[in-house]
Amino acid sequence: MIRSLLCLLFLVAYSSNAQDRIEIQFDSHQFAEMYEIETLRFYISNIELHGKNETHFKEENSYHLVDLEEPESWVIRYPNAKFNVQLDSISFLIGTDSLANVSGILEGDLDPIKGMYWAWNSGYINFKVEGKKRDSNTHFEYHLGGYLPPHATSRKLTFPINTDEVILIKLNLSQFLDQIDMQLLNEVMIPGADAVQLSNQLSNYFSIE
């Protein structure tokens, strides 16, 4: 399945009162103008919700693979989460933490059968996007991974929450791809300086709506 999109939106929805649940939703907005996206898969991990400088929700074993082709992966539900305070921020990692990368064989979204694991240089691909830039017909493959300094690629993001109802976080994939000079760099397949550079840039294109 080939999909095209300009940006990916994901929603964090929670209720602080009667509903007693959290839902994180990912939503794609499709545009066929600049890029043809063949694969978009990335991990978010270590999801936390904070209020008044305290952590009120910290998911155990928090690893989620978001896959453009798997709509069910755009929704993360916490049906039993309960809060008595006003939440004011959310934090998570784009990618996996170093523990996941050194723990041998893992299950669920971290199962190497998901195609997000490098066998020859143990560790996870934190973010994978593959596709084609339409105007120049350039094919690109960016596999961003690596957990060892100085080439660690997961990035922690924290965003303020200013509503009780829905938090909408956007990944502007098109803008991220726009700023890469694809003539110079059309693929990254190993941990290293390029993966670090792109991971730094990538974190700038997540935002709160």
Partner: peptide, 20 residues
């Protein structure tokens, strides 16, 4: 494991010969 130490845990080593 491996001559370059690229594999950091015995449990994931066998992925390499299977897929190489």
């Amino acid at each position: 494991f491996h001559w370059d130490g690229g594999v950091n845990h015995l449990d994931v080593q066998a992925l390499n010969p299977i897929e190489h």
